[in-house]
Design a protein around this nucleic acid. Structure first.
Lengths: 165, 165
DNA sequence: GAGAATTAGTTACAAGCGCAACCAATGTCA
DNA sequence: TGACATTGGTTGCGCTTGTAACTAATTCTC
C-alpha cells in the first residue's frame, strides 16, 4: 500500500521481545510444538499429516492441490504427507477419470477413526489454551489475527507453505 | 469472564482455518518469511543471526546462554548463529575470566553498523504490517498474545534448552 | 581435596523443509 | 492438428533444525 510516510516509530530502538513478528513466530512455534507432541505421541503422525487428515475429515474428498491450498502447505509437503498417510493406511487415492493428472484423496475407515480421536484432543487443547480469556477479547484477537495474516500473506509475497500446528 | 464452563465448542467439528494453533503458526511463519527475506537480501544473514544481533544491539554484551534465553533460541542454534556472525566479522567473543566455560559476545563496529541499518527496516516492516489497526485494538491484541505465549510455554512443557524448570 | 553432578558450548547425525527440476496429462491457439 | 504453455504431482538436492552425545570448566558434597 503506502510506501511513503511510514508511521514513524516513536524512538529508533527495538526490543526484540516486543517486536511483533518475533512474538508471532515464537507463539506459533510453541503451538506447533505442543500439538505436534500430542499427535506424534498418540498417533505417530506429524503436523503436516494432521493437517491433511483435518482437511479430509472436514471436506471428505480432496485433491492434493486443494489440500495444499486449504491448509497452507507447500505441494511437496502435501505430497509427502499424503504418501506417508497412505503407507499407514489412513488415506487412499483414486485417480480422477476426468483429469488423470490429479487424484482424489479420502480418509479410510482407519483414517476416519484417527480423525475422530484427534478432533476432541485438538479442541480440548485449544480450549485449555484460551481458558480465561473473555469471548469478546478473543473475538477481537482473532479479528486482528485475520488482518495480520492477510496482510502478512501480502507482504511476504507469493508462496505457499508453512510449518506448523 | 467465564473461567469454569469451558467455552464449549458448539459442535464437535473442527475447522482448521479457525483452529487457533494453526492460525498462529501460519501467521508466525509468514512473519518469519517476510522478514527473513529482507535480512537475507540486504545483509546476507538469516533469522537466527538477526535475533542474536538484535539482542546484542539491545544489551551490549551477552553470553550465548543469555542470548538463547532472551531470544528463545535453542543453544545449538545460538552456537551456529554466533559462529556464523563471527566468521563474517559482525561479532567477537571474549572468554570470561571468571568462568572460562562461557564467553561474552559483542557486536563489532561492522556488526553495530548492520544493527543500526536493520532496526529501522524492521520497525518499518512492523509498522507497515499493523497499519490501520487502531492502537487500542493492537494493545489488546498484544495483551492476549502475551497470555497465549505464556500459556503456550507452559502447555508445551519441558523442551527449551536452558535452565528453565 | 576427590569424585560426582551441573553447566556453557560444540559437534555428529538424522529428519524435515523448500526450491528447482522433472514427468505426465491437459489446455491453448494458430 | 501440432507445437507450446500450464497444471498436478513427485523426486533430488542442499540447507536448517533439534536431539543426543560429547568436551571442558565449575560447583557441590562428603
Amino acid at each position: 500500500m503506502s510506501t511513503k510516510p511510514l508511521p514513524q516509530n516513536q524512538n529508533e530502538t527495538l526490543q526484540l521481545e516486543r517486536f511483533l513478528p518475533y512474538r508471532l513466530n515464537v507463539v506459533g512455534t510453541l503451538a506447533s510444538r505442543a500439538l505436534g507432541r500430542i499427535y506424534s505421541e498418540q498417533f505417530g503422525i506429524g503436523i503436516p499429516e494432521w493437517r491433511v487428515v483435518a482437511q479430509l475429515g472436514e471436506f471428505g474428498k480432496l485433491t492434493s492441490r486443494d489440500i495444499g491450498e486449504l491448509a497452507q502447505m507447500h505441494k511437496t509437503k502435501v505430497s509427502r504427507a499424503v504418501s506417508e498417510l497412505e503407507k499407514r493406511g489412513f488415506v487412499s487415492r483414486a485417480e480422477n477419470r476426468q483429469d488423470r493428472r490429479e487424484a482424489f484423496v479420502t480418509l479410510t475407515a482407519a483414517g476416519r477413526r484417527v480423525y475422530e480421536q484427534i478432533v476432541p484432543l485438538a479442541l480440548g487443547f485449544e480450549a485449555r489454551w484460551v481458558e480465561g480469556i473473555s469471548p469478546d477479547e478473543l473475538k477481537l484477537f482473532e479479528r486482528v489475527l485475520s488482518i495480520l495474516t492477510e496482510r502478512g500473506r501480502h507482504l511476504a509475497g507469493g508462496y505457499r507453505g508453512e510449518d506448523g500446528a
